[in-house]
């Protein structure tokens, strides 16, 4: 989705071969192509943290170093997905997840909105961010790949190595779960309930 469809578009094996021959350009193209996937995966594991992009770059450095070991029988997206997931999980283990306050999440809001609308939009997004953090990791993973990474069901299925039906049902269940979380919060707020 949204990827170049020009005539000169090279396929993964060509870019991998180029990168292995030391072509900086080929490797840069690979990074650009897989950035949405890697970013989504890292974000799904770590949540909204300052070091997400740092971890993303670590992933690509690992990818480069492991490129010679990549077997073409496997899908490159699946291979890269595993590296990204492992790297992000290791980061969780190393540094304590600080649980950055949701209020500080910096999100861009469309400029054409009135200030109060912008505030509302920002609050909505922060809320969503907070609820997503409470989902199961698999649910969060499919949601991030779908919306953060703008990947199709087929691409997610290939990347995660899951049947397409499973991906679909994960996404729908994740949304139903989000609804439960958001509705529960609304009722709690209405009833004046606060977590101890």
């Amino acid at each position: 989705m949204g990827e170049g469809t020009g005539v000169t578009r090279q396929n993964d094996p060509e870019l991998i071969a180029g990168a292995l021959q030391g072509s900086e350009k080929a490797f840069r193209k690979l990074v650009e192509r897989y950035h949405p996937v890697v970013y989504s995966v890292v974000r799904a594991v770590l949540g909204d943290r300052d070091d997400v992009e740092d971890v993303v770059q670590e992933v690509f450095i690992k990818v480069y170093r492991g490129l010679a070991k990549f077997r073409q029988e496997a899908k490159f997206s699946t291979w890269i997905y595993r590296i990204a997931r492992n790297e992000a999980m290791n980061t969780v283990g190393k540094k304590l997840v600080s649980g950055q306050p949701i209020e500080e999440v910096l999100v861009e809001t469309p400029a054409h909105l009135r200030p109060d609308e912008q505030f509302h939009r920002r609050a909505q997004r922060s809320e969503l961010e907070g609820h997503m953090a409470r989902l199961d990791q698999d649910y969060r993973m499919v949601l991030e790949l779908r919306y953060m990474g703008e990947k199709s069901y087929a691409q997610i299925s290939e990347t995660m190595g899951l049947p397409m039906g499973t991906v679909k049902s994960y996404i729908h269940r994740a949304k139903i779960e989000l609804k439960k979380l958001m509705t529960r919060q609304t009722t709690e707020t209405r009833a004046g309930l606060r977590k101890p």
Binding site: G22, S23, E24, K25, F27, R28, K29, V31, E32, R33, H35, P36, Y39, S40, E53, V56, Q57, F60, I61, Y64, V107, E108, R125, L128, L143, E144, R146, Y147, M148, G149, E150
Partner: peptide
């Protein structure tokens, strides 16, 4: 959710930084 992708940094900038960090020279 459809707006979520706008939170993602630009892939080209990220790729440039990765290549710089690795010391790969444009050739």
């Amino acid at each position: 959710l459809a707006e979520r992708h706008t939170l993602r940094p630009a892939a080209s900038a990220s790729a440039r930084r990765v290549v710089e960090r690795m010391g790969l020279r444009p050739q």
